[in-house]
């Protein structure tokens, strides 16, 4: 049956998406502005991108952030997938409530609390702060997002496939890698990407847990933004937005093609 699509629906969609996208569009447009004054249009120019490429401090920070995000995403995906498995498959065990509490709480925990508590622990344990501590901190909250994404796929997973593999002589580890993992792979990849962007994006937790020589891009952007609006930050933002948009669109196209081919195979 068809759903009634009214003028009210059309208006709320238009206004809603305008609200979501206008700020981003304005930001991107003004990164190509000739003038240093961000709000006055003085002609098209890519000079701020050129200037960004000369800014070695920014580039260093970008490199630090990339390394942190890659390590975080990989660690968080491994731990998060294990945690999802425990949540969905391990049934009841002692301390299960605490475990699921520790999985869900970081999703909504204010970042200042997570950041402060981790920093105080690193200090209490006498760990030198730097890139490594940021990775540990990011992994801890990112793995919970991965666990939620992967467990939602595991819940709808047909368990008999795994049991068949075991009956046919697979070891449990073999069964996981040759049967389960290929089926849950899209959610594991989505989890990895989510962990990657969460790490890439984080300012607060990184500010608390970082040390000398490990200034991440958000920390750098934050200190620049506090000084005011500048076209160079607009240019940097545009590059980051373009990377993320390409990633999200690619993933959803792959997902769509897979859904179509799966539907065709049936």
């Amino acid at each position: 049956m068809t759903r009634k699509f009214t003028w009210f629906n059309a208006t709320s969609l238009t206004l809603g998406f305008a609200f979501l996208y206008l700020p981003i569009i304005i930001l991107v447009v003004y990164s190509f502005n000739e003038s240093k004054l961000v709000t006055v249009w003085a002609g098209f120019s890519t000079k701020w991108y050129g200037e960004l490429m000369q800014n070695t401090a920014m580039l260093d920070a970008a490199w630090v952030t990339l390394r942190v995000a890659l390590m975080t995403a990989t660690l968080a995906t491994i731990l998060g997938t294990m945690a999802a498995y425990v949540l969905v498959r391990s049934g009841r065990f002692r301390g299960r409530t605490l475990f699921s509490g520790m999985i869900y709480a970081p999703l909504v925990m204010p970042e200042v609390i997570t950041g402060l508590s981790l920093l105080l622990m690193f200090i209490a344990m006498g760990i030198d702060r730097g890139l490594f501590t940021v990775v540990l901190a990011h992994t801890t909250f990112a793995m919970c997002y991965v666990a939620v994404v992967v467990s939602s796929r595991l819940v709808s997973f047909d368990r008999s496939l795994e049991e068949a593999a075991l009956d046919l002589g697979c070891t449990p580890l073999d069964a996981f890698f040759s049967v389960t993992l290929p089926i849950i792979a899209p959610s594991v990849i989505a989890g990895w990407l989510l962990a990657f962007t969460l790490s890439l994006d984080d300012l607060v937790i990184a500010s608390f847990t970082t040390g000398p020589g490990a200034t991440t891009l958000p920390i750098k952007i934050y200190s620049a933004v506090r000084l005011g609006v500048s076209p160079e930050i607009n240019a940097l933002s545009t590059i980051l937005i373009a990377i993320v948009a390409t990633g999200v669109v690619t993933v959803s196209l792959i997902e769509k093609r897979r859904a179509i081919s799966e539907a065709g195979a049936k």
Binding site: L20, Y30, V38, V244, A245, V249
Partner: peptide, 24 residues
């Protein structure tokens, strides 16, 4: 599916950048 993607896209975009956009 297009609209869902359009809602998710800003969520993946840096929080700091989206706040920065509003300063302008």
């Amino acid at each position: 599916s297009l609209f869902v993607m359009l809602v998710i896209l800003p969520f993946w975009t840096s929080f700091l950048i989206r706040v920065y956009a509003w300063i302008g």
